[in-house]
Amino acid sequence: MYGWLAVYYRELLILKRRFPKMLASMSVSPLLYLIAFGYAMGKTVMIHGHTYMEFLIPGLVAMSSMTRAFGIGSEINISRFYWHIFEEFQAAPINNISYALGETLAGMTRALFAVILIILLGLLFGVVLRYDSPMFWLAIFLNSFVFSSLAVGLAMIVKSHADQAMLTSFVITPMAFLGGTFFPLSRLPVWAQDILYFVPLSHASKAIRAASFGEPVSLTSYLFLAGIGAAFFFMAVCFVNRARD
């Protein structure tokens, strides 16, 4: 199991080297969403007793933790198809669980930085929510675990970098907009709500929003995220072997 530390260590070194650039690129989208949707369009909008800016920030936290955690898949692909660094891990005496765990944790670490950045941006706009709630951080932890595990698993089976980009377009982008980030799901028709109930981001948005408002959280959402995260992680471990061909 020790191998995960080496895999994680490598990702941290890369993160450290790219940190200023990464921070800048991480800020652009949330800042634009906050200005366009939160500040300009949503100025007069109230949702469930909260300003739209207050409603938006937990949604952006959920969305960014998802996209940044999923982004580890692209990093793996670059090191696999372009730099061939993945072969260094394959030839090392580490098992599949260690590799998957190291990369999953790396994705979760990136997600954590994205979340902190959004909280800081929110403060700039004068929005202070309940970030001291353990349930807030637990929901972020589970959400990033779900999408980081999914990304690691998919990165093992895609055949090119283009395939990975396609997955982002067809899976992550629709989820980002329909997972309760920008509007409450209760405004959609019931059939759409039923479908979106099975989208992990819907549960993450709901849990993160409730915790950050200091409202009671739904345990079902946490169990759903934990269950699906465990399933994706198991899938990632199994798929590491498939990457050997």
Partner: peptide
């Protein structure tokens, strides 16, 4: 293993590349 294609981590230093390998082999 010395692979045909150089698969060093270009973003890491010389020392970091060797250190990472040492970590992988415990």
């Amino acid at each position: 293993l010395v692979p045909q294609a150089i698969n060093l981590d270009q973003e890491l230093t010389v020392y970091e590349n060797l250190n990472l390998h040492g970590l992988l082999f415990r």
